[in-house]
């Protein structure tokens, strides 16, 4: 027999972990928002995407979340006319990453909101455990 509150802590931890990975991917995208290639006509940094899936933990039967994969976005690159750039092709166009700052920032906000919600669950589970332990005290 497993303790549901232990399972709660485990599920909360899985959520926190998944959201931190998402935050990491967003940061990588933001940091590389201007990263171009080095050789003429080469591809720039490609935006990374992260996807989640739910998974049933065998020992506790808990519905944990896990990262199902980090993939590359298939969106087209932006181009800019800049003939002097090392990565410019023969027509003078430079390929820029397909990272949209606005989308990344929105993603970051969502990740931090979900992170906070998971943290709240962990806190509450701890409170419930403490209430049970308190039954032994002060009597």
């Amino acid at each position: 027999m497993f303790d549901p509150l232990e399972a709660t802590l485990q599920i909360g931890a899985s959520g926190i972990q998944a959201q931190s990975k998402r935050m990491r991917v967003v940061t990588e995208n933001l940091a590389n928002a201007q990263t171009t290639g080095k050789t003429p006509g080469s591809n720039p940094y490609t935006r990374k995407t992260i996807s989640f899936e739910d998974e049933v933990d065998d020992t506790t039967g808990a519905n944990v979340v896990k990262v199902s994969g980090i993939d590359r976005s298939r969106a087209p690159y932006r181009t800019e006319y800049n003939p002097g750039h090392p990565a410019a092709d023969e027509k003078g166009y430079v390929k820029l990453p397909n990272v949209d700052m606005l989308v990344e920032l929105a993603d970051m906000r969502e990740a931090s909101r979900s992170y906070a919600a998971n943290l709240q669950v962990v806190k509450q589970a701890r409170e419930l455990i403490n209430m049970t332990i308190d039954l032994l005290r002060s009597t």
């Binding site: 303790d3 549901p4 509150l5 399972a7 709660t8 599920i11 909360g12 899985s14 959520g15 998944a18 959201q19 998402r22 996807s51 989640f52 899936e53 739910d54 808990a62 519905n63 944990v64 979340v65 969502e110 979900s114 919600a117 998971n118 669950v121 509450q124 589970a125 419930l128 049970t132």
Partner: peptide, 21 residues
């Protein structure tokens, strides 16, 4: 309390999967 703990575990699963398609 057992029932409440089970419910808390279910809610935790929901929140952890708040962004799972």
């Amino acid at each position: 309390n057992q029932w409440l703990a089970a419910r808390q575990a279910t809610l935790a699963g929901n929140i952890a999967n708040a962004n799972t398609p």
